[in-house]
Design a protein around this nucleic acid. Structure first.
Lengths: 339, 339
DNA sequence: ATTAGCACTCGGACGGTTAGAGTGCTAACT
DNA sequence: AGTTAGCACTCTAACCGTCCGAGTGCTAAT
């Protein structure tokens, strides 16, 4: 069904007024917004129909109307006029990112924090996802008799390492044996193929060498696991308290501290830009919140996500472009860094 | 001035009742707590005097009394009977720490999170402080033509590293030159002696090699700086919302996100156990909060701190022992790991 | 299809009243 | 002198009724 032009304008006006002021919008106010070209009665009729269709709701009988979640949805999909970022705004955002070191995690923390300042919302970012990566290099760097650093490099250029302390000295023989195991079992393997089962089989097959080698191999497996696990970065949690309802806020904060849950939520968002409004989200803790997630890329390949969590009453038209722009920046900075 | 035995018991009863229930305590309730051995009138007289002395205050005229911050202070210093953790409680806490990897930061994150569950407060932990450490080893591990990992080891056994990407190939000559610079300028130096000034002088003195070497040297300096910087770990922030006053909570959460500030606060706490109650804290954002910080040690040397932030109305008598016990655990785990 | 007008509804603010909790004081008691 | 009973007093929270204004829905006129 198509809405008449006037109804659409009324709906937009109600949504934008409500986003701006947070109070139900009445027919008189709208009348003024239309320069009194139409009477309040006409607007009332239209509002009644919009409410019938489910785009608006009434907190109580004698109050104005507020957008329903379906209303926001229609607005975001169809009616909204995305704000265009000015040159100077773009420059401002750019300058807030001071990405120097080559560490992608640091960039994402920064981006997350910039986004929190920009949007006054809580922000989420995932570190690089790299599901198809394989292990391309493993290095064992000895630092002393019993200490070493184990370094793993993936085909996509991600590098992780961990310190490894042993109870016995690292002899040349041991190191050679370790590299042998690595070459035949790990190099070229997909990072998510390293499971505890394969690991147990491997250790079992080592026979009497197992005792000495397994600490190293287990550490190696842990590093690989860490690479395959996405990490979640949160910022601006205090912004959640700007929204009223303290009870809800506590629930939300607690929800956000469950990282596993968050990972799943973020990774369900597959599009370049995802807007999930209120109860569209399967998690009841988010029933009054909107989540906007944009995915960033490295050299055109999906690499992770960045986004905000806020009340359903957020300024979609200006926040979405900010998120998109920032995500673009992150994509290009990462693509430059990892070549 | 000495308080009579009865006044002390009344004060203790009021404080513990108030901590338990959060409501002003009246003379009748106390009367029951004393098995009606003294009349409410007597208690009222004593309460009036305790209020006069500043240990109690009255929210309003017809309400009971609540402890003042000075009251809490006297309680913590003089009156409180610390709860003793039972064997099984100790075991429970121990089993919550699953410290496997050799990474101290991970242990502190875990400890912080355990403490948050235990106390239902927000928790703070600092990672290892190591002010007197010197640089004992630097390794450059090449991973490809233009990529390397730079590893720094301190005299105290702390290990940090960072990936370093260059715009030009890492030749043997370059590497030798780098090690030369490291040997004569960094090895043996105190980690906090590496300032930007000395760095600039160093780069200047390199002459025409500066261009090729400086990215490596700058990365090295950044790693050293990172070691000398303490990191702050926060957990259980959502617990702050249990306390009423949402306005205050927002302020607090924002305050906690200012890491620099937190570092200073935590490091001002020099004793083994520090209890800062409400306005004793110079930061006005904490005027309604108590901060309890315990320091942990490695092999007897001060190494960092661990603690909680909660309302002034917290159960000092049982939380303090928990914090102390956990801090002890962390100390011994760390002392075992770094030998 | 639009509009003016009007009756109606509802929530929030205001004010007065009441019940209850708790105090402070005084006078009596040990 | 310390303790106690008793009483008047104070203050809050809860309840209730009233009133105002905002905003609606409906009807009848344009």
């Amino acid at each position: 069904m198509e809405l008449s032009e006037r109804k659409r304008r009324i709906l937009v006006a109600i949504i934008e007024k409500y986003i701006a002021h947070g109070e139900p919008v009445g027919s008189k106010t709208l009348c003024q917004a239309f320069d009194n070209k139409v009477s309040s009665a006409t607007i009332r009729n239209d509002m009644a129909e919009l409410a019938q269709l489910g785009f608006l709701e009434q907190p109580h009988a004698s109050a104005g109307r507020i957008p329903s979640q379906q209303g926001y949805r229609y607005y975001v999909d169809t009616l909204m006029n995305k704000r265009v970022l000015s040159e100077s705004e773009q420059r401002a955002i750019k300058s807030m990112l001071s990405y120097r070191s080559g560490d992608p995690e640091q960039l994402l923390e920064e981006a997350s924090s910039v986004l929190a300042q920009l949007t006054k919302c809580a922000t989420i970012a995932t570190t690089l996802v790299d599901e198809e990566a394989t292990i391309s290099k493993v290095e064992l760097v000895t630092l002393g008799q019993t200490t070493a650093i184990l370094v793993v490099v993936t085909s996509k250029g991600i590098i992780k390492n961990r310190v490894c302390r042993l109870d016995y000295p690292l002899t040349d023989k041991l190191i050679t044996a370790f590299y042998e195991v690595v070459r035949s079992n790990f190099i070229g393997a997909a990072i998510n193929s390293v499971s505890t089962v394969t690991l147990q089989n491997l250790v079992a097959s080592l026979g009497d060498r197992a005792l000495m080698l397994s600490p190293l191999i287990i550490t190696l497996a842990e590093i690989v696991h860490e690479i395959s696990e996405i990490d979640i970065v949160l910022e601006g949690q205090s912004n959640l308290l700007n929204i009223g309802s303290a009870a809800n806020a506590q629930e939300l904060l607690e929800f956000l501290s469950r990282r596993e849950m968050l990972k799943r939520i973020v990774n369900e968002q597959k599009h370049r830009l995802n807007v999930v409004i209120g109860q569209e989200n399967p998690h009841k803790e988010l029933k009054n919140s909107s989540v906007i997630i944009a995915r960033y890329k490295i050299d055109g390949c999906d690499a992770g996500a960045l986004g905000i969590i806020g009340s359903t009453r957020i300024d979609y038209a200006s926040l979405i472009p900010s998120i998109e722009y920032l995500t673009g920046l992150v994509s290009s900075l990462l693509s430059d860094a990892i070549e």
